[in-house]
Design a protein around this nucleic acid. Sequence first.
DNA 1: TTCCAGGTGCATA
DNA 2: TATGCACATGGA
Length: 276
Amino acid sequence: MEYKIAENKISIFGKDDFNPTHILECGQIFSYKNCGEFYEVFSKDKHAKIFETEKGFEILTDDVRYFENFFDLKTDYGLVKKKLSKFQIMQKPIKFGYGIRILKNDLFEVLISFIVSANNNIKRIQLILGRLREKLGEKKGDYFAFPTREKLLSVDEKFFAEIGAGYRAKYLYNVVRQVDADTLQAWQTLPTEQLRNKLITLSGVGPKVADCVLLFGFGRGDVFPVDTWIEKMYNKFYQPEQNREKIRRNLTDEFGLYSGYAQQYLFYYMRVRGDN
DNA sequence: TTCCAGGTGCATA
DNA sequence: TATGCACATGGA
């Protein structure tokens, strides 16, 4: 996919491998707004607006280099889809979510966000994270930054309960005391399996949340997060199986380095289309 | 009213 | 190692 970077704008040429609806509404990020004429997306303390043009899309932002990496623009998703299309099961999901790209979101934000996501629905996750930004994030004109770790350290467990986190309040209170952004960044050098083991030691982080952080933060394509929707998918298209660890092993064996990409097309397809 | 949502932690055997 | 249950909250 071709794109051009100017001072405050990234121009995307073509609409085959980039679609803001697919990218933002496929459940990998919770901080964005559909404003009709455009989408606005928030990551860390930054934001960008995405407009559709005749030839493609334009991303307007003060930090073009950040969002070039965020939208994973250097990866050839045409190739990803070509590799995945040899699997029969991927035909419809790829056609349906053709413009999906896997985001490289801020590690600390992804960690907090997906701890909130556990056993929760997307609407409520967005609500809780929105309140978190409003109450603790720095005001940046007409939006709020994601709170820094220092800010998150300043509140008690009750605060997280009051913004609606429910029983996850304890996990959040604990996890901000267990890691900081630099520690997470340092883990980037580890191979996936070791990194996964590190993440699972954190409060509120199990196999599923760890895989989401690996995929949507660390950019590891060799993980396959198994949630309730993937379990539904697996039981529909493969053999009946309720052990999520077995499902995960089977799917990563099948899709290898492209596991994460496959997962995201399938997740989006299952959640929006239900089936067929 | 009951079920479900991008599951995890902990006790028990 | 594996199984079962509790855990907040709000929409369907």
